[in-house]
């Protein structure tokens, strides 16, 4: 059961990097890929239906951390205090950019929230990089290695975001396989620390009475969670770019 919950934790974290990485990437590249307002709207509209379904993976990570690794939850989050605060603030600012950008039409309003979207996305990628490096090193929150690692995370998210944008735009050679490739790439920066930290995680797993309850209650939810995610990708995947859906203005 310990292994099962380690697996769940790892899967959720990897899922977050693979499925939210491109949203963060597009956010960072927004000023570069979207020079005009129409272009930016198209980029954001492309990722919009996937954002809510993507960021929940991290919320689930936090939940599983608390439920299955309760002693780590306090220890790690506290050890990374400034980074966790930075990550949360970035996350909120990025999301506010998404939710608010189209609520008013003024030029300044749009520019401001597009800026928030971009800055928040950078903040997310950077704090993730620093946090992962600090965890692996078991040390201070700001080190040269951490800065390098943060740059790597920014890089892979940017690549993933670009691939996603190309995939949405369609055209030859922009296949789902290419997107899958960049998803795998985006997951590497978190998969490596996970492998390194696996024994340590297993050392801190909750007692079997707790894990038993979690397994019992959550196992029936797993098929529903998977189905909901698959549904999102089927409903808003490539097929939906054309046809009736194409002319529906995006809410984000």
């Amino acid at each position: 059961m310990d292994i099962l919950w380690l697996g769940v934790f790892a899967l959720l974290l990897i899922g977050y990097f693979a499925l939210e990485g491109f949203d963060i990437g597009i956010g960072m590249l927004l000023p570069v890929l979207g020079r005009t307002r129409e272009e930016r709207d198209r980029l954001v509209a492309g990722m919009a239906p996937f954002v809510l379904a993507g960021e929940v993976w991290l919320v689930a990570v936090a939940g599983v951390l608390f439920g299955a690794f309760p002693h780590l939850e306090g220890e790690t989050l506290f050890a990374l205090y400034p980074l966790v605060v930075g990550l949360l603030v970035s996350w909120v600012i990025r999301d506010a950019g998404l939710w608010f950008r189209r609520r008013l039409d003024g030029r300044a309003w749009r520019a401001f929230w597009d800026g928030a979207l971009c800055v928040g996305s950078y903040g997310l990628a950077l704090t993730w990089g620093l946090a992962l490096a600090a965890l692996v090193q078991g040390g201070p929150v700001l080190t040269p290695l951490g800065v390098g690692y943060a740059a790597v995370v920014v890089g892979v998210f940017a690549i993933h975001g670009r691939r996603f944008a190309a995939w949405r735009a369609g055209g030859p050679g922009r296949t789902g396989w290419a997107l899958l490739g960049s998803a795998a790439l985006a997951a590497v920066p978190v998969a490596v620390p996970l492998v390194v930290a696996a024994p340590w995680l297993l050392d801190h797993v909750a007692p079997s009475s707790t894990l038993g309850v979690l397994t019992l209650v959550l196992l029936p939810c797993v098929p529903v969670m998977v189905a909901a995610q698959v549904w999102v990708w089927r409903a808003f995947g490539r097929r939906a770019r054309t046809g009736v859906g194409a002319r529906v203005p995006s809410f984000f």
Partner: peptide
């Protein structure tokens, strides 16, 4: 943990 996986995860996905 159950709240995040069994409820919020689904709530947000279905809301999207």
């Amino acid at each position: 943990a159950v709240e995040t996986m069994g409820a919020f995860f689904l709530e947000s996905t279905f809301l999207g």
